[in-house]
Computed example of a mutant assay.
Amino acid sequence: MTRIYLIRHAEAEGNLYRRVHGWYNSLITDNGYRQIAALKGRFDNIPIDAVYSSDLFRTMTTAKAIYESHALELHTRPDLREIGVGVWEDKPWGELAHRDGQRLRGFNHSSPEFQVEGGETFAQVQKRMLAAMRDIAQRHPDQTVAAFSHGTAIRCLQAAIRGLEPGEMDALGHSDNTGVTCLTVDEHGVCRLIFENDSSHLPEEISTLARQKWWKSRESSLADANLWFRPLNMETEGERYRSARSDAWQDIHGSDLPCDSEAFQQDALRCWVQDPQKAVMAAMLGETFAGVLQMDLERWAEEGIGYIPFVYMAPEYRKKGLGVQLIGQAVSTYRPLGRTRLRLRCAPDNGVAQRFYKKYGFVKVGEVQGAGGVPLDLLEKGIGFEPADESR
Rank of each mutant, 00 (worst) to 15 (best):
E113P: 01
F148N: 11
I136T: 09
H109M: 08
L80G: 11
H98P: 00
H140Q: 13
E113D: 15
V145A: 05
V145C: 08
A97H: 13
G118W: 06
R99Q: 13
G101T: 07
R103S: 15
G163T: 07
G151W: 01
P78K: 14
V125T: 15
L130E: 13
E89R: 08
F148R: 09
A131I: 05
R139A: 15
I83H: 03
G86W: 03
H75V: 13
P78E: 13
Q138L: 06
C156N: 13
F107Y: 15
R139V: 02
V87E: 11
I154A: 07
R128F: 10
E82K: 03
Q102I: 14
R105M: 02
L96G: 07
I136R: 08
C156F: 01
G151P: 02
R162E: 14
R128Y: 01
R77D: 14
E113H: 15
M129I: 04
C156K: 00
T152D: 07
M129A: 04
L104Y: 07
P141M: 01
P92V: 09
P78C: 00
H140V: 07
G84Y: 06
A153K: 06
A146D: 13
G101F: 10
Q115T: 14
E120G: 07
A159Y: 01
R81I: 08
R162G: 00
R103T: 11
L157S: 08
A159D: 04
H98W: 12
V116R: 04
W93R: 06
V116Y: 01
R128A: 11
W93M: 14
E82Q: 08
R81Y: 01
P141Y: 02
D142I: 08
W93T: 09
Q124M: 13
G106C: 02
E89G: 12
A147K: 07
D90P: 00
A132K: 06
L157W: 05
A123P: 01
T152C: 12
W93I: 14
A159M: 03
V85H: 02
I83A: 09
A159T: 03
D90G: 12
P78L: 08
I136E: 07
D79S: 13
Q102H: 12
S111V: 05
V125H: 10
V125Y: 04
R155H: 05
F148D: 03
S149E: 05
T144D: 00
T121H: 12
F107H: 11
D100M: 02
H109S: 15
P78H: 10
S111G: 02
Q124V: 06
R155I: 04
I154S: 08
G86L: 03
A159L: 03
Q158I: 14
V85C: 07
R81N: 07
A147E: 09
R134A: 06
A153F: 02
P112T: 10
M133K: 03
V87S: 01
L164M: 12
I154G: 09
P92E: 03
M133Q: 04
E95I: 00
K91A: 12
I161D: 02
M133C: 12
V116C: 03
A147R: 04
A131C: 03
K91C: 11
H75W: 00
M133I: 00
A132E: 05
L74R: 10
E120L: 11
L164R: 11
H109C: 14
A159W: 00
